[in-house]
């Protein structure tokens, strides 16, 4: 894997000066992914924060070829570009190695773009799809998506007098990607640069589709201070809301296990989108949300062949 020094020396293919918010994780994700890619890249963007903030005509923040088509079709669009690459290589019109990377937010990936993504994964294009999951349709003003955690207040699942924010649990998109039996699927966050770099290197090395789900906190939607973006992403891993894992040719592997699993409730407490949950009378709901994260964590440990929390505790106690 490339070292931090090596990464620092590589040309930056997403320049500064774009219009993303202070504290936005999405451009950091894009920059880090591209730093981990040594070959020329063709990048596709779904409509969303990353697209509107980096391509305002007549400017572009992109130092590599980029295509934005529409909201729900970045996977299909990039699969077309990849098909063109195969054809033109076969016909001797191109002799360079080029990589294909699609970026979509959670709205463009979990929801409206799911069909397009599923089709592209099934067809086996050699492309890396990166979802920057910030947990809502942040670009249009923080509407709920199927990636929004249960209990979060968004503008279409507002905390009201009767309803405590979003009622449904999150869709497990990473799991859905795994079920396509593609060579490489992984989850990471914007804050874990080394984990992310290693996973992008692996993903780009496979001769087929790869999917990377990257937690990318949004200070606007999460209602958090911009300087806490990285810390919130790190803490999401520590409380097991967003575990770091990968599935390589069907083999599940946990990449990081917190020494001591932290409280999901405490993680929620730091974010304005969950503020309403901390009024008296909602203790049972909070416990339920914690239990949901615990259950998903447990299921992941089983899949990865890791000892369960209680087993580990017993082992420590001897």
């Amino acid at each position: 894997m490339a070292t931090l020094k090596e990464l620092a020396r590589r040309p930056n293919r997403l320049t500064g000066g774009h219009r993303a918010c202070a504290g936005c994780a999405a451009p950091v994700v894009a920059r880090q992914v591209l730093l981990a890619c040594q070959e020329p890249a063709v990048v596709g963007l779904a409509t969303g924060c990353l697209e509107v903030t980096t391509t305002i005509y007549p400017y572009t923040a992109w130092g590599c070829s980029l295509i934005h088509n529409a909201f729900e079709n970045v996977a299909a669009t990039v699969s077309g570009a990849e098909a063109a690459y195969r054809a033109l290589r076969r016909r001797g019109k191109i002799d360079r190695e080029i990589r294909f990377i699609a970026f979509g937010g959670d709205g463009g990936t979990y929801d409206i773009g799911l069909q397009s993504l599923s089709g592209a994964l099934e067809r086996g294009h050699r492309m890396l799809y990166v979802c920057y999951d910030n947990g809502a349709y942040e670009n249009t003003g923080i509407q709920r998506s199927s990636a929004t955690p249960r209990g979060a207040s968004t503008t279409t699942s507002p905390a009201g007098k009767v309803l405590p924010g979003k009622r449904q649990p999150r869709k497990d998109l990473t799991g859905i990607a795994v079920m396509h039996n593609i060579p490489y699927v992984a989850q990471t966050t914007v804050a874990h640069w080394n984990d992310l770099t290693r996973k992008v290197e692996k993903a780009l090395a496979v001769d087929g589709p790869a999917f990377l789900n990257v937690l990318a906190p949004c200070r606007l939607g999460w209602v958090t201070p911009p300087e806490e973006t990285m810390e919130l992403a790190r803490e999401a891993v520590e409380c097991c809301f967003w575990p770091l894992y990968e599935v390589e040719n069907g083999v599940w592997r946990l990449n990081y296990r917190p020494r001591e699993k932290k409280s999901y409730i405490e993680w929620m407490k730091r974010q304005g989108r969950f503020k309403h949950l901390f009024q008296p009378g909602l203790e049972a709901l909070l416990a339920d949300l914690q239990a949901e994260v615990d259950e998903r964590w447990r299921a992941l440990l089983v899949r990865c062949g890791e000892p369960l929390e209680e087993e580990r505790l017993q082992a420590v106690q001897g």
Partner: peptide, 8 residues
């Protein structure tokens, strides 16, 4: 490199 489909 070019940018196709910029925000206009």
């Amino acid at each position: 490199p070019i940018t196709v489909g910029a925000f206009d």
